[in-house]
C-alpha cells in the first residue's frame, strides 16, 4: 500500500517560490492501477519522483507498505527503490549501448534478493515479448520495444510498486495499447501501478484517477 500524507514540494523560482505540490494526500491499495492526470506543470511528475524516492518533499510524509520512506537517508532510499519500486519513464532511460539483457540486469546488480538472475531476466523478457531480442543492443530496438525493455527492467527485481511517468508519451497508439495491456496484467498480478499521463484514453483504462491542478488534488 502507498500512502501520501500532506506532501508539499516548493521550488525556488526567481525571487519567489513555486509550489509544485501543495498538501497532496491519498492512499493506493495493493494491486490498484491508478492514473495521475493533470495539465503540464500541475505537479504530476514531481509527485511521481517523490513516490519513486528520486526527489525529496519539502514537507509531508510518504509510506510504502506502512513503512515511512520519506526522510530515510539516501542510501536506505536507494535500497527501497531497488527492492520495492520499478520505474518507467517516457524517454525509456535505457543505456543505449547495452543489450536488452544488460539493461534488464541493472536492478539485479544492486539487488539483495535471492534470485536466479538469468532465469528472472528470461522470464520477464518472455512476459513482455522480447525473448528473441535478449542480446540485441537497445539502439537497434523500436520505441515500443524499448519501452517493453524498460518495463521488463522495472519488474525484474519483483517490486511491489511500478511507477510510470508518461510511459506511452513517445509511442504510437498500437504500441501504447500494448504497453497498457502489460500494465493491466501487472496490476492483476498484484503490483501497485501508478501512471502519470495527460492522455485521457490511458487514464480511462485505469481503475482510479487522481487529478492534479496547481499542485493540488481536485
Amino acid at each position: 500500500m502507498l500512502k501520501v500524507n500532506n506532501l508539499v514540494k516548493i521550488y525556488p523560482s526567481g525571487e519567489g517560490k513555486l509550489h509544485a505540490l501543495d498538501g497532496v494526500s491519498f492512499e493506493i491499495t495493493d494491486g490498484e492501477l491508478v492514473a495521475v492526470t493533470g495539465r503540464s506543470g500541475s505537479g504530476k511528475s514531481t509527485l511521481l519522483n517523490i513516490m519513486g524516492l528520486l526527489d525529496k518533499p519539502t514537507e509531508g510524509e510518504y509510506y510504502i507498505n506502512d513503512k515511512k520512506a520519506s526522510g530515510l537517508p539516501s542510501w536506505e532510499q536507494a535500497k527501497v527503490r531497488n527492492a520495492e519500486i520499478g520505474f518507467v519513464v517516457q524517454d525509456f532511460a535505457l543505456v543505449e549501448k547495452y543489450t536488452v539483457k544488460q539493461n534488464v540486469n541493472i536492478p539485479l546488480i544492486y539487488s539483495k534478493k535471492q534470485l536466479d538472475k538469468e532465469k528472472a531476466i528470461r522470464e520477464v523478457l518472455r512476459r513482455v515479448g522480447l525473448s528473441d531480442k535478449i542480446n540485441t543492443p537497445v539502439y537497434k530496438l523500436s520505441g515500443g520495444q524499448k519501452q517493453r525493455t524498460a518495463i521488463a527492467r522495472a519488474v525484474v527485481n519483483d517490486p511491489s510498486v511500478i511507477l510510470a511517468d508518461e510511459p506511452t508519451g513517445a509511442l504510437d497508439s498500437v504500441n501504447a495499447n500494448g504497453i497498457m495491456t502489460l500494465f493491466e496484467s501487472l496490476s492483476r498480478a498484484g503490483k501497485t501501478v501508478v501512471i502519470v499521463t495527460h492522455d485521457m484514453n490511458i487514464a480511462a483504462r485505469c481503475s482510479r484517477r487522481i487529478e492534479l491542478s496547481d499542485g493540488k488534488i481536485i
Binding site: 519513486g52 528520486l54 542510501w75 536507494a78 527492492a83 520505474f87 532511460a93 541493472i106 539487488s111
Partner: peptide
C-alpha cells in the same frame, strides 16, 4: 550519465 540510470534502478551514490 549512464550510471545515473543505475541510480533510478536502486544503485546507491557510493555504488
Amino acid at each position: 550519465v549512464e550510471l545515473l540510470i543505475h541510480m533510478i534502478c536502486g544503485a546507491k551514490l557510493s555504488n
